[in-house]
């Protein structure tokens, strides 16, 4: 009987251990850390725009799976692209994201980031529900799609008031490629053009 108890106990501890690796609680902690980081970044008016962009790039590189997102937003055009084209695209994709968000951040002053909860998804990911409380406007709800792979927790999608940034960008790029007719290079060209005046 005692043996059974020990076996049961160890099994229980083992399963708990497995779950402790990545669950809703972990996902929420992960998001709350990032939220704090980003809000600090926004409200700190002492740093320059350049520094802010650098720090934002750092968050993007370490907390998001940019490659998976880039692959998703290109859809089938990813498969047709050469490794060099992919590399170039990912870089441009990252830079345009940094450019568009870093400028948006400038207007923020005393925002508050709140975790509302989380939910495991059928595809194995976890959605963390958050909102940003703004001083003179209604709160913005942001949902974060998070996956754990090879012991790395990363953000794969940002859903703003129900609008997935991944899907929106994918539709946009598909339409641009269909009109331009040049595969991934059409996008690279367009992104370069978009980035050019800002640099």
């Amino acid at each position: 009987m005692k043996k059974f108890m020990i076996l049961f106990m160890s099994l229980f501890i083992w399963t708990q251990g497995v779950n402790a690796e990545f669950g809703c609680a972990e996902a929420e902690t992960f998001m709350s850390d990032i939220g704090k980081k980003v809000i600090d970044l926004l409200t700190d008016k002492s740093i320059s725009d350049h520094e802010r962009a650098d720090q934002f790039r750092d968050i993007l590189e370490t907390k998001f799976n940019v490659k998976a997102i880039g692959k998703f937003v290109l859809g089938r055009y990813w498969k047709q692209a050469s490794p060099e084209e992919r590399e170039r695209f990912l870089n441009l994709f990252k830079e345009t994201t940094v450019a568009s968000y870093a400028t948006r951040f400038k207007e923020y002053t005393s925002e508050r980031f709140e975790i509302l909860g989380s939910r495991p998804e059928p595809d194995g990911g976890i959605t963390v529900f958050t909102q940003i409380i703004r001083p003179n406007a209604s709160p913005i709800t942001i949902d974060w799609k998070i996956f754990e792979k090879n012991n790395e927790i990363r953000i794969y999608d940002v859903i703003l008031a129900g609008i997935s940034m991944g899907i929106t960008q994918r539709s946009e790029y598909a339409s641009v490629i269909q009109k331009g007719g040049g595969g991934i290079e059409t996008i690279n060209f367009a992104l370069e053009k978009k980035l050019a005046p800002k640099k």
Partner: peptide, 19 residues
């Protein structure tokens, strides 16, 4: 009911590994 049911980027076949 305030759920986004459309697909999202996800890890798939190892090609997108961070590490």
């Amino acid at each position: 009911g305030y759920r986004q049911t459309l697909e999202s980027p996800c890890p798939d076949d190892g090609d997108d590994d961070v590490v």
